[in-house]
Amino acid sequence: MNKAIFFKEWIKTRWYLLAALVVFVSYTLYLVLRVGNAIEFKGAAHLWAVLLTRDAVFIEPVQYLPMVFGLLLGVVQFVPEVVQKRLKLTLHLPYPQPGMVLMMMLYGLGALTVLSLAQLVAFWGFLQHYMAAELTAHILLTALPWYAAGYAAYLLTYAVCVEPSWRMRSLLILMGIGLLRVHFLLDVPQSYNSFIGSLFVFDLAALLLVLRSMVRFKEGCQD
């Protein structure tokens, strides 16, 4: 049954995931080429100096990418379910209802994790050739909150889509904007280091909002 749930989600999202893969690969290649060109023309030492003195991490253009990807994945996965009223069919299947909610979520979180990790590994693979391990870690640690925002955006979109009342939906959207803003408040590199773990946990805790929305959907709550 788990395989069937993933199978359905895959058929639904595959074209979006393919498009997202192209965008992630394009962004990664663009940033690798940009940094590569800078190293070629100005030398790695110059890059190190910029990194240490100007708070630049070179991969800033990617900062909103995981968030946008998470948000759109949530939309692609759940807006049709709600608009076409298929969620009732899905929850009627002989499978535990909370389990069904979590399996669909697991699929999305899995897709998000695979693309995010692949991009981070690609950056790491490239940067470690030219920079000290500490500087590579400096860049990647700075980028971690951006990837955490992807999870938050995905889960909040899920909660908003499934929520049956517009009043609560609006509240969730406002909460979501606030939560996502937290990931982009501090622009000094590694400012989130001391609480990056807590931030990830806090983002993943948004799944409680999804479960709450699902309970409200089941009860047929209205404005």
Partner: peptide
Amino acid sequence: LEGHIQYAFM
């Protein structure tokens, strides 16, 4: 369901 709703993308 009303309208013969199904997973139309399949």
